[in-house]
Structure formats: C-alpha cells, structure tokens
Computed example of a mutant assay.
Amino acid sequence: MSFNKPISEQSKIYEFNGFTLDNWLNPCADPSMCSALGRSIEIGLLATLLATLLGTLAAFALVRHQFRGRSTSNLLIFMPMAAPEIVLGSSLLAMFVAAGLAGQLGFWTIFIAHVMFCLSFVVVTVRARLAGMDDALEQAAMDLYATPAQTFWKITFPLVFPGILGAAMLSFSLSFDDFIVTNLNSGNTTTFPMYVWGVSRRSVPMQINVVGTVMIVVSLAIVLIGQSRARRQAG
C-alpha cells in the first residue's frame, strides 16, 4: 500500500488503484505528518534514554540489595503495567493539574508520562536478565583482584547489556506507539499516533504506509542483525 496511487483525496487507503513511487519520493507531502513523526521519535528517544537509565539502576537495586520497602517497591513497579492505560493517563493528567501545569500540557508532559509507564517495563526486563545471570564470573574476577568498577564494566555490564538493549527497544516501541496516555496529556501537541487518528476521520495520506513499511523493515533488520551476531559468536 505504500506504493498505492490514490485516484483522489477521498480514495480509501486499502484500495489499490495503481503503482507509484510518489509516496516514497515525497514522504513529507503533508508537512504536519513529518512534524508529528519527528516529535514522536524525539519523545521516544528521550523517554527511552531516561527510563532505561532509571530502570536499570532500579533493577540492580531490587536484585542485588536488601532494603526496607523492597516488596512495596516491587508492587509499585508492577502497578503501571497492570493498570489500564486510561487509568494511568487520567492519573498522570490529575497529577499535572494538581502541580499547576494544566495550561502547560505539551511536549514535556508527554515525555514525563512516557517515562512513567516505560520505567516498569525496563525494570522487569533488566531484572529478569539479572536474576538469571550466574555470578560465578563476577566472583572469579574479584578473586583475581579486580576492583568493583573493573568487575562491573568488564563482567557484569557486558552480561546484562542484552537485557538493557532489549528493554530500551521495548521502551521506544511503547512510547512511539502510545495514543491513550499521550492524548490525555498532550495539550495542543500532536504525535504520530494522534495524527493518524485525526486524519483517519477524513482521507488518510498514503505516506502513512511508507512510515509503517520503514518501521517493519527496521524492526526486521534489528532482529536479523542480532541473530547474525549471535550465530557468529556461537560459531
């Protein structure tokens, strides 16, 4: 459908009318679509960076340390994953209103909201990697007089990194794709899912299919590259 040539602006997006490369050659025929897409990518990258950093630190704390309130922390981490998005989005909106940000909803409130629900997925993913990791190599490194910093960067971090990378990719996917939480906390800011929802009431630009195709190709490329590297390392 990304190569579909619409007969008119009212052409349905899933009716193939003819082959064309115009959609690929002019992906920003509707400038507002590219603006919304860029905004979603920017928010997704920033939210992924912060959520991955905080979530990784929290996962290490929950797995490697005993402290008062540990079980309560586990419960709080799982709550955003269990709660319906409409509940999470409305709760965050209530928090922003209570903080006096009702008239300032936009890019940064979306960013904070995305970090809040991505954080739980990062903690769970990295925690699973840490819990299943054998600490024999870390103990061997310390027996060979490695400092705690050397042990972490040369042993622990490389072993945990696949889990951190997977958590980051999951966070970006969740942030980029989110609509409900974003819609409640966006103000006048438009992200790509909100743009798609808005234009679906009228005529949907064929360039949306170009974005979808690129996302699928990039996702498959990441999976294939990861499998290729794993096979080379195993060989």
Rank of each mutant, 00 (worst) to 15 (best):
L62K: 00
E85C: 03
G44R: 08
L46G: 09
R70W: 01
L50P: 01
R39H: 12
R70Q: 08
F67G: 03
L93F: 11
S73W: 08
P80G: 12
G89K: 02
F67N: 01
A59I: 00
L54M: 13
F96R: 02
G89F: 12
E85V: 05
I86E: 09
I86Y: 05
L53E: 08
A94K: 11
M81R: 07
L57G: 11
P84I: 09
T52N: 01
P84V: 13
L92K: 04
T48H: 06
V97L: 15
T72W: 02
G69T: 07
R70D: 09
E42Y: 13
G55E: 02
L45F: 14
I86C: 06
S40E: 03
P84A: 11
F96Y: 06
L57Q: 06
A82S: 14
L76M: 14
G44P: 04
E85N: 12
V97W: 14
V97T: 10
L54C: 13
V63T: 09
T52I: 09
H65K: 01
V63K: 01
I41F: 13
L88K: 09
F78V: 15
L49M: 11
E85S: 12
P80D: 11
G69C: 04
L54P: 01
V87Q: 13
I77P: 00
G55C: 03
I86S: 10
R68E: 10
N74T: 07
L53T: 14
S91A: 14
V63M: 01
Q66R: 07
V87R: 04
T56H: 03
F67T: 00
G44Y: 03
R68K: 04
